[in-house]
Amino acid sequence: MTTTDPIERLRDAINSHDPQRIADCFTPDYRAELPHRPAESFTGSDRVHANWVAVLARLPDIRAEVLRRAAAGDELWSEWEMVGTAPDGTQAVMRGPVIMATRDGRIAWTRFYLSPVPGL
C-alpha cells in the first residue's frame, strides 16, 4: 500500500533506493533552501533525482528514519536520521530537521538542515 502522507512517502522512497521514486515525491518546480549552505540551494525535481543518484552511488544501503514530526496545514516539520555505509566501510550518519511545504500531496519547498554527524 502506498501512503499519501508526504513524509512517510519520502521516507519509504529513500529506503527503496530508487532515485526516480524519490524525485516523484516532489513537485516539478520544487524549491530546496539550504540555509547553512545557500550556494547548494536549487530548484526542480530533476535535480532531486540527480542528487539521489549521487547519494545512492556513495551510500547504496542508506536508511532513512523520521524521528519526530509536526504539521500545521500544508507545512510539515520533521527530524530525520539517515545512516549508510561509505565506500571506505565506515558508517555515514546525517541528522537534522527538514521543514516542508506541500502542494497536491507532493513536496513543493523545503528548508533543509540535515548535516553529517562526524565521528560515529
Rank of each mutant, 00 (worst) to 15 (best):
S41D: 07
H49E: 10
L56R: 04
I107A: 05
R103K: 12
R31I: 14
T102I: 08
R68T: 10
A57K: 14
A13I: 03
D5A: 05
A23E: 08
E40F: 08
L59E: 01
P35H: 06
A54L: 09
D5Y: 02
A101H: 12
L76K: 06
A57F: 12
E79R: 05
V48F: 08
G96N: 15
N51R: 03
D61I: 06
S41H: 06
R69P: 03
S115N: 13
G73V: 07
R58Y: 09
A108Q: 04
T27W: 05
I62Q: 03
E79K: 01
D61W: 08
R31A: 11
I14D: 01
L120Q: 10
A32G: 15
T90F: 07
V66R: 05
D5Q: 03
V66C: 10
M94N: 09
N15S: 07
F42K: 01
R68S: 10
M100F: 14
R106Q: 14
D74C: 09
V55D: 09
L114P: 01
R103F: 12
A50H: 07
A92L: 13
M82Q: 05
R37C: 08
R111I: 09
Q20W: 04
V83G: 02
F112W: 10
M94G: 09
A71D: 02
R106V: 13
A71P: 00
I7Y: 01
R106N: 13
V48S: 06
C25V: 02
P35N: 06
S16M: 13
M1N: 02
W80L: 03
W77N: 13
M100K: 15
D46H: 11
R68K: 06
R106L: 14
A57T: 14
P6V: 13
G84V: 00
L120K: 07
A50W: 05
F112M: 05
S115A: 14
Q91F: 02
W77K: 11
R68N: 08
R103G: 13
G89R: 09
R31F: 12
L59H: 01
A108K: 02
L59G: 01
S78D: 05
P28K: 10
V66W: 04
P19R: 00
D88T: 03
E81I: 15
N51H: 05
I62D: 01
D12I: 03
G73K: 08
P97A: 14
A32S: 15
D18T: 02
R31Q: 12
M82I: 03
V93Q: 00
Y113W: 08
A86C: 14
C25A: 07
T90N: 12
D5L: 04
D18R: 01
E79Q: 08
H17N: 11
I107K: 05
T110S: 10
I62P: 01
D46G: 11
E8K: 11
S41A: 15
S115T: 14
F26R: 00
A101G: 10
L67G: 08
T102G: 04
T90S: 12
R31P: 07
V93Y: 00
